[in-house]
Design a binder for these strands. Structure first.
Lengths: 110, 110
DNA sequence: CCAATTTATTCTATATTGTATAGCTAATGT
DNA sequence: ACATTAGCTATACAATATAGAATAAATTGG
């Protein structure tokens, strides 16, 4: 029943991408942001499936924008993080921080 | 097929617990460390299943210690993180860091 | 030595996440 | 109208997360 308390690994990455992209976050840009920043290749299907789940949990919301005047420029579905989503990010970060605090091994290997 | 590149959310927490506990890391202490640090309640079964998976990927190794002279003190299976495991932690951290870099929203809500 | 008790690990089952591919839709250009 | 393009949806399957019951190996008390 009750959803999980912490963001899954990929959910976490995706929601951070939304925060970075602010008002220009939609499927394609989310994917680009992740690839550009981390070098990680992800399929577009993976992005949408994850966004869909985040939305089901109330961590993000979305609305369709107007079609842009370019070839194939159909309307985009823009996503943004909700307050509940921010809380989830912070909960996740807190846990990670408390587990890494004082662990110099980790940083030195970075 | 090919194992994943990044640590799953819980795998991450568990491996950090091992790093903290160093030579006294085994099922029970791992669980305690996580609960003590994060307040998160986890079943012992979840801990072992995860350790098993981490071991299958070569991120951790284990060996049984001698039974201790206490009631019910059967021998413990001690776990430690391998070099490969350290790399996985760092890869995961790097990705997270690159996605959070410059995002002050996050820290301010912590 | 047997039963009870205790610490620890293993087994098993199920829900949730991660991930890719293929297919569908709505625009524009010719 | 039809080709082309950008973007979204559907679907399927593998991997992870998670709990609970079962099993094992010690110790202690009679």
């Amino acid at each position: 029943m009750s959803g999980r308390e912490y963001l899954g690994e990929f959910e976490h990455i995706v929601i951070l991408a939304l925060l970075r992209l602010a008002d220009r976050a939609y499927g394609v840009t989310v994917r680009q942001e992740i690839e550009a920043r981390t070098g990680r290749e992800v399929s577009i299907g993976a992005i949408y499936a994850t966004l869909e789940r985040l939305q089901a949990k109330g961590y993000v919301k979305s609305q369709f924008g107007d079609p842009t005047p370019e070839r194939g420029g159909r309307s985009k579905r823009f996503f943004h993080v909700t307050a509940k989503g921010i809380s989830a990010v912070n909960r996740t970060h807190r846990a990670l921080r408390s587990m890494t605090a004082g662990l110099d091994l980790v940083r030195s290997y970075s």
